[in-house]
Design a protein around this nucleic acid. Structure first.
Lengths: 224, 224
DNA sequence: GCCCGCTTTGACGCGTTCTTGATGCCGGCC
DNA sequence: GGCCGGCATCAAGAACGCGTCAAAGCGGGC
């Protein structure tokens, strides 16, 4: 139920943590370097990351940044360095906690519990449904009446942003900057084309949308 | 903007933290013991708690429990005790982080940032109501007796500015410059047209407005 | 090198929204 | 009482935003 990604370059520590964490009820995924960590985070459903900063292939801060680019999974940093600067840098890069070696296993377990307790309740339902279609945010799948609907990358980006803000008005600028970048903030025409596309694929009556609504002059709204 | 409750029984530390945190942009509320801390947490809008475990009147763990009974505000524990057991107990009692003395101010600030970053996105959404209608500022929705009312962009801009200043007089210039731009600061006619429009949409008796009031020669006022 | 799917761009019709002018009302002031 | 400034209301043309269709770039896979 609770999956931990452990990133450390020393095989013994990796093994020790794997055994101990598993003994305490965690599923453990391991990675010996930064690249493997970033890959593992995308291919597994990770609940919390334990990250050693001293990796051979890349700076630990870059690993944090790489994760924070797309996920808010809790990150607990392990480090042999006690300096205040190291702590500050790691936390500001997006880490949630910083533990200096040597540390007691009890303490790490407690910090793991604290981290997953915070993240636990937020378990945002990665599945949004309407009477007509269902969007699986985690797996990037859209079903219409149970039938999968293919989405192009751009279509998906637009749809995702709308669906992640159910009932809320999403301004045109928000959509354009999020999907195409700040330079396209005024290319509202793009939105019309893609909203039409999404409606054709998802709405029962594309000309009279029930869920992908236009707020003239303001933006668009997803109505669950 | 960000209010910190600092709990410590040593006046010097309290003072030092107050000064330093305030210098870094935090509002600081202090409490010298556990009872005062629990009281302060209820009477102030606290965003994060910094709690020394060594209090004269009650066990720090009980303070944590007392807070966790009704709030999920982040708690950062300060302690002179390095023992693993202390860390485990505090975290399992509901603390979010555990820092051992002596600690660098930089580190505390970084942990404060990390804590409020996690809690930050929960932005309570503002919702303004009158007997006649309700304005949902976050979602840009206006309800009149539960029925959504469509607003044009300009109508919404005017309404938003008024509603964000409930009971306060908003001058014509303020409205004009905010909605149409500084060049239109004297086009008071625009205001009359749009106030009439808003009243027609929102007031029970548009000719005798109860909430969107005119202050002749000065501006307009939203009365909740 | 070619094909195919995706993205970008253009053109058009339509409905809505903004702007502007005209008119009448009210209260204060001379 | 008459004048005047500020306000409310109504109406109409202009400007804008939206949806739609279609065709032209663009890039990756084969």
């Amino acid at each position: 139920m609770n999956t931990v990604l452990v990133v450390d370059d020393e095989p013994q520590i990796l093994r020790a943590l794997q055994i101990n964490l598993h003994a305490h009820g965690y599923q453990v995924v391991t990675a010996p370097n930064g690249a493997a960590a970033l890959l593992a985070a995308q291919t597994h459903a990770i609940d919390v990351v334990v990250l050693d900063l001293g990796l051979p292939d890349m700076d630990g801060l870059d690993v944090i940044a790489g994760l924070r680019g797309w996920t808010e999974v809790p990150i607990i940093v392990l480090s042999a360095r006690h300096g205040s600067l190291d702590v500050v840098e790691a936390l500001d890069a997006g880490a949630d906690d910083y533990v200096t070696k040597p540390f007691g296993l009890d303490e790490l377990l407690a910090r793991l519990r604290a981290a997953s307790r915070r993240a636990g309740p937020q378990t945002a339902e990665p599945l949004v449904s309407t009477a007509e279609f269902t969007v699986d945010l985690a797996n990037k799948i859209v079903l219409r009446k149970g039938v999968p609907v293919r989405m192009t990358p751009t279509e998906w980006s637009v749809l995702e942003l709308l669906v992640r803000n159910p009932g809320r008005l999403v301004s045109q600028q928000q959509l354009l900057t999020a999907v195409w970048g700040p330079a396209y903030a005024k290319e509202t025409h793009y939105l019309r084309v893609y909203m039409a596309q999404l409606r054709r694929k998802l709405e029962r009556d594309p000309a009279n949308p029930a869920h992908l609504l236009t707020e003239a002059g303001m933006g668009y709204r997803f109505q669950p």
